[in-house]
């Protein structure tokens, strides 16, 4: 598989992120079920799954690109487009949903001019809907990056967003 090795060498030796991913792929390429940990790693390093990197994964792990795309598009955790600097995850789990978390999503969307799954044009925010965050007592709940906001009403939204501007 000289071809596959060549592609791994496409990673710039001076790019520390690329080298981290390369090392991880090398460690996992012969492990059954290695694809998902590799995708996690790429997502962690780059914040999303860049096309070029997935081509390299396909070549070096000998997994068809269509299969990788199938996995990447199946799990909502993975993103095929770059995410914003801050990721907003609004809970749409049962408890939050009955406490009208949809109104919170709508309000954030209105404020930022995006819909669920999109990123603002300045690259600052990505809006996502998520399932139970395990804080039902605080419903409705959302997280921005790793910070939790609970007992939300839609008028809280502008103030919270301004904290991240």
């Amino acid at each position: 598989m000289s071809n596959a090795e060549n592609r791994l060498n496409d990673f710039d030796p001076n790019d520390s992120k690329g080298q981290e991913v390369k090392k991880f792929i090398q460690e996992h390429k012969n492990i059954k079920g290695g694809l998902i940990p590799v995708l996690h790693k790429i997502q962690d390093v780059y914040g999303y799954l860049p096309k070029e990197t997935l081509n390299t994964v396909s070549d070096s792990m000998n997994i068809p690109l269509t299969e990788i795309y199938g996995v990447a598009s199946f799990y909502s955790y993975f993103s095929l487009t770059p995410k914003g600097k801050h990721v907003i995850r609004v809970c749409l789990g049962t408890a939050c949903y009955v406490k009208n978390s949809q109104a919170i999503i709508d309000e954030i969307g209105r404020e930022l001019g995006i819909t669920v799954g999109q990123t603002t044009s300045d690259g600052k925010f990505t809006l996502e809907a998520t399932r139970c965050l395990g804080a039902c007592g605080l419903s409705p709940v959302m997280m921005i990056d790793d910070k939790v906001f609970g007992r939300l009403v839609k008028d809280d939204v502008p103030k919270i967003l301004s904290e991240f501007n």
Binding site: P64, T66, Y69, G70, F74
Partner: peptide, 9 residues
């Protein structure tokens, strides 16, 4: 050939 697969869910 692997031109097609399942996407999304």
């Amino acid at each position: 050939v692997y031109a097609i697969g399942y996407g999304n869910r």
